[in-house]
């Protein structure tokens, strides 16, 4: 594949009849679960790596730049099951033909480390928490001329990359959507289309900030949706809430995991709880409630688009464990769509 081409794919957009039935309004799914690294992260990180890793770019003096990617492990107490940003960085580096070193904290599961190595990355396990990994990564960059530090968080280039999703929607949808549903909040501005930003309780840093009217640091991340688990949202994210109609909504871990399970039956796709949070906007009736409260129009002027952000850190067994841990019914499963 050519370096000039984006590293993400234009992901499928399709209507979901089961979710349409559930929501009582047309629901379209933007399937970023079928991105090359299994999540939307490749859009931003791919764009960043491509830009800073390209020959002659101002950041990288040498052709053989090295991307350093600390695992986004922002939670204070819970072991990370993150890895979607790291996967995206490792994949990008491999496609671009540059070596990548990924620094992860010691709590990172072996499976994640193995998957990163399968992508051809050198994995350095350093420190207990993310902060140690970041410091170590920055030291590596200082000591190795030509290396480039890839921030998993908040680079403007990452934001620019994520905006490709809205561009695709604009091309594919004939009408303006009535709302866009996301987990967390990213740049998804499309005129005045309201954004429903979903979080789980215990990883609700955006919601806490919106309620307080200022940036807030959560004392602890207690949700199982660890890839949502930023203790504090960035300035840029918070600014977006001021500029654009955003409804910040919180569901329980139970809601998110139940949504993951129903989504397998309805759409045959297995996603992380972080993504389940967005799906719960439909399955747990958040959209209907927002309509009842007069926050979203009824009927909506266009279809709802749910961004299915995907995620790597889930298997059937893991889902089973989460259900047990959260006291959800059945070691079994739910029946098909009613």
């Amino acid at each position: 594949m050519q370096n000039q081409q984006p590293l993400h794919v234009a992901s499928p957009l399709r209507q979901s009849l089961p979710l349409t039935k559930e929501a009582g309004t047309a629901v379209y799914l933007k399937l970023d679960s079928s991105q090359p690294t299994g999540s939307f992260k490749i859009r931003g990180i791919g764009h960043l790596c491509q830009t800073v890793g390209a020959p002659g770019s101002p950041v990288c003096v040498r052709r053989r730049a090295q991307g350093i990617e600390p695992e986004p492990e922002p939670c204070l107490s819970r072991p990370s099951t993150g890895g979607n940003a790291g996967m995206a960085a490792a994949y990008s580096a491999r496609q671009l033909g540059v070596p990548a070193t990924i620094v992860v904290p010691s709590v990172t599961p072996d499976l994640t480390v193995e998957r990163l190595r399968d992508q051809g990355a050198t994995v350095v396990v350093h420190g207990k928490a993310l902060n140690d990994s970041i410091v170590h990564g920055q030291q590596l960059v200082e000591n190795n001329p030509g290396w480039v530090f890839i921030s998993p968080f908040d680079d403007p280039l990452i934001w620019e990359g994520h905006s490709s999703l809205v561009k695709e929607l604009q091309q594919e949808l004939r009408e303006k959507p009535g709302a866009i549903v996301l987990s967390g909040l990213r740049r998804a501005a499309w005129g005045d289309v309201p954004v429903v930003a979903m979080e789980t309780r215990g990883a609700h840093s955006l919601n806490a900030a919106v309620k307080a009217g200022e940036l807030v640091t959560l004392p602890e991340i207690t949700s199982v949706a660890t890839t949502l688990g930023l203790a504090r949202v960035s300035e840029r994210t918070f600014a977006l809430v001021q500029e654009h109609p955003v409804f910040s909504e919180v569901v329980t871990d139970q809601d998110a995991v139940a949504a993951v399970e129903r989504f397998i039956d309805d759409e045959k796709i297995l996603v992380e709880p972080a993504c389940g949070a967005a799906l719960a906007a439909v399955y747990s009736g958040v959209l209907r409630r927002l309509q009842e409260e007069g926050k979203l129009a009824e009927p909506l002027g266009g279809p709802v688009v749910v961004v299915v952000c995907g995620g790597n850190n889930i298997s059937v067994q893991q889902l089973q464990k989460l259900k047990q841990q959260l006291g959800l019914p059945g070691g079994g499963h739910q029946a098909g769509p009613a």
Partner: peptide, 24 residues
């Protein structure tokens, strides 16, 4: 999407591309 599967590539010993017709 046409996706490269790292897991399957490892098994076969050559790059495996998946044409994801399930997403139709």
């Amino acid at each position: 999407p046409l996706l490269e599967s790292v897991n399957m590539s490892k098994r076969v010993g050559t790059t495996v591309y998946l044409k994801m017709e399930n997403s139709q």
